[in-house]
Design a protein around this nucleic acid. Structure first.
Length: 263
DNA sequence: AACACGACCTGGTAGC
DNA sequence: TGCTACCAGGTCGTGT
């Protein structure tokens, strides 16, 4: 799924097409409550934003459409004639003969309409944006100090940092030379500063990769261009020290790391 | 508080 | 070929 970088790429593309467009008709097959369709009719789209892994589409006088892509969701604008993939879970007829399509093979993604207070509550439940100034080394030190969680799980907690997911958390830990099982509150300040830099560097690069990796309808192929060091590479040599990458399971999810580089 | 685990869903692939 | 088992970039609710 899309983690922050892929969601950011989706938002940037939508931002070229959506602002100012009007929703003529909405079809929500299984991604939202059916009553939503009527409430979206003839609404004008004001803008597109991202918060963590959420796509936020602001509607004039009607609140904000929140789209969560979960594992396999994608959101894009196509001409009407382009047809719908069989896994399209929702689409929105726009003016100008275009369609906003929510494609989600695994059907875990969700669309909901949030009122202003609901939107505020959502945003308040999320930690700082890792690519904003709110995510400082000082913030990371303070947050880590209060958590005894293994650092990998700490990084996945959206309430602490918004937008990191399984791939880039593992990649950031590898760059920072930190073992994923190490408790967050037992990391020295210097190592947390290094982790902070690694998170920002990994996400910056991944956003670039995700934005450049556009290959065609509904694909997010950042993995094609992002230089993955550990994720999904069990048994393959670490690019830094050549020792074989290990896979462990934390909270039911795979974590990949290098036993040589990460302590 | 912290952690494991199942649920939500479908599809791709490795192994027999 | 065809079946099964397991895996998957996320999150939430429940139980210990």
């Amino acid at each position: 799924m899309p983690e922050l970088p892929e969601v950011e790429a989706v938002c940037r593309k939508l931002r070229r097409d959506l602002p100012g467009a009007r929703i003529r008709r909405a079809r929500l097959l299984r991604a939202a409550e059916p009553g939503l369709e009527k409430r979206l009719r003839n609404r004008r789209i004001e803008g597109v934003e991202r918060r963590g892994k959420n796509v936020l589409i602001r509607l004039e006088g009607a609140g904000t459409l929140r789209v969560h892509l979960k594992m396999t969701g994608n959101l894009y604008v196509r001409p009407d004639g382009a047809g719908l993939p069989p896994t399209a879970r929702a689409w929105f007829a726009l003016d100008g003969g275009r369609r906003l399509v929510f494609d989600d093979p695994r059907a875990l993604g969700r669309i909901e309409l949030l009122s202003e207070p609901e939107l505020e509550r959502l945003c308040a439940s999320l930690g700082p944006e890792p690519l904003s100034s709110a995510f400082s080394p000082e913030y990371l030190k303070e947050a880590a100090r209060r958590s005894r969680q293994p650092v990998k799980l700490f990084l996945l907690d959206q309430g602490k940092i918004a937008g990191l997911g399984n791939i880039y958390a593992a990649e950031a830990l590898h760059r920072a030379g930190i073992h994923p099982r190490r408790p967050a509150n037992r990391l020295a300040n210097q190592r947390l500063e290094r982790l902070h830099g690694a998170i920002v560097a990994v996400l910056d690069l991944a956003v670039q990769s995700a934005c450049n990796a556009y290959r065609g309808p509904g694909r997010y192929d950042s993995a094609e261009t992002f230089p993955v060091a550990v994720y999904g590479r069990e048994g393959l040599p670490c690019p830094a020290c050549r020792r074989p990458i290990r896979r462990i399971v934390q909270a039911g999810r795979s974590t990949y790391y290098c036993p040589g580089c990460q302590r």
